[in-house]
């Protein structure tokens, strides 16, 4: 399978405390050594709890934030390009291949610009089209995301949440990117609208030959859209693999806990989800053992001392960072209990 994006050993630290001379004494570790590959035409779901560094990882991949170390490279026609090392014209040239979609369509569209200008802004920045070409391109992309081009001159305030997210899609896709980083694209929307947008994503993926990183905190949404799932905890990817494997055969205790928390409709039984106890480790300190050891039900001595290797792998596509190889409860067990 062709790889379009490769993230290796990516770290992102934010300055947290500076001393009198302006030198940073303490860093907040948001992303801690992340490795993964994105294949062509696949949707990789990135799940994790709030504050685990999902969005920061997404922003670093699209070069909105500079990584502290490590790199993320995009493969264009066999050429490996690290956006973070480029600037000016070259940066813009390759930026067309990877675009980001923001979470909240109510804040990601400038209220003072008509929809046409919002959608066409990438064209204004990257190309020198005249206004007829721009109008043409905008109406073309609006049709593709399911918007009426007659609404081009309207302002964002006259659109609903779902329509706004479509505008954001049009803006992200107008330069026909290869990779799209979608940062929680549905979590700000109503459930019925969520379904529409998810269908739109699947349709656009086919039409535009997109590879998508789908960031979400909602496992059920990720389950619907993605081909592979990466589970993130505390700035690290703790498990990554095909959707089926992750959902039905989780290997990492954190994935198990996440799956147990997925709400199941018509559940007459008492909630038997796994309740995580214990504290999150401090993001300011260096962690000696497994990141999840403080809250893990299966935690043992070794977990606090040794960092688990990430290359544990049962099939060739399923990686997880745990010392033990256990068969944990997948989503099936909850569905069966319900029947």
């Amino acid at each position: 399978m062709e790889t379009v994006l490769e993230v290796t050993n990516l770290y992102k630290k934010f300055p947290y405390k500076t001393n009198f001379f302006g030198k940073t004494e303490k860093y907040l570790n948001a992303v801690n050594g992340v490795n993964f590959k994105l294949h062509k035409n696949e949707i990789l779901g990135l799940v994790g709890e709030s504050g685990c560094g999902k969005s920061t990882l997404g922003k670093t991949i699209v070069s909105l934030e500079k990584p502290s170390s490590g790199n993320s490279t995009i493969n264009i026609d066999g050429e490996k390009i690290d956006l973070n090392n480029l600037d000016g014209k070259k940066f813009r040239k390759y930026k067309r291949y990877i675009r980001m979609l923001f979470q909240d369509p109510f804040t990601s569209l400038n209220p003072r610009l008509p929809v046409k200008d919002i959608i066409a802004e990438p064209l204004h920045v990257h190309y020198n089209y005249n206004k007829y070409q721009i109008t043409e391109k905008v109406s073309e992309i609006m049709l593709k995301v399911g918007l009426d081009p007659n609404y081009m001159k309207r302002y964002p305030h006259s659109f609903s949440g779902g329509q706004r997210q479509r505008i954001a899609f049009a803006r992200a896709l107008i330069m026909y990117p290869k990779i799209l980083v979608a940062d929680e694209p549905v979590s700000a929307l109503d459930v019925s609208i969520q379904a529409q947008i998810i269908n739109l994503i699947l349709q656009l993926k086919k039409e535009f030959q997109l590879s998508i990183i789908f960031i979400s905190h909602d496992l059920s949404v990720v389950d619907l859209v993605s081909d592979r799932i990466a589970v993130m905890y505390f700035g690290e990817i703790v498990e990554i693999g095909d959707k089926k494997d992750i959902i039905n055969n989780p290997k990492h205790p954190y994935t198990e806990a996440l799956l147990s928390a997925v709400p199941i409709p018509n559940n007459n039984n008492e909630l038997n989800n796994i309740k995580l106890t214990g504290e999150l480790p401090s993001p300011l300190e260096k962690i000696t053992g497994c990141v999840f050891s403080s809250r893990c039900a299966y935690s043992q001595e070794i977990c606090k001392k040794k960092i688990p290797e990430f290359n544990n792998n049962i099939k060739k596509n399923h990686f997880y960072a745990c010392h033990f190889d256990q068969n944990l409860k997948g989503i099936n067990s909850y569905l069966e209990a319900n029947d």
């Binding site: 922003k59 699209v62 909105l64 940066f91 813009r92 930026k95 675009r99 980001m100 923001f102 979470q103 909240d104 804040t107 990601s108 569209l109 400038n110 209220p111 003072r112 610009l113 802004e121 990438p122 204004h124 920045v125 990257h126 954001a168 803006r171």
Partner: peptide
């Protein structure tokens, strides 16, 4: 986010200031 999304496409500072920040 709308400033972030302008930065994301590589818009210049002048563009961000005069198209996005100043009118707002």
């Amino acid at each position: 986010d709308f400033i972030n999304s302008a930065k994301e496409i590589g818009a210049s500072d002048l563009r961000i200031i005069f198209i996005h920040i100043y009118p707002n």
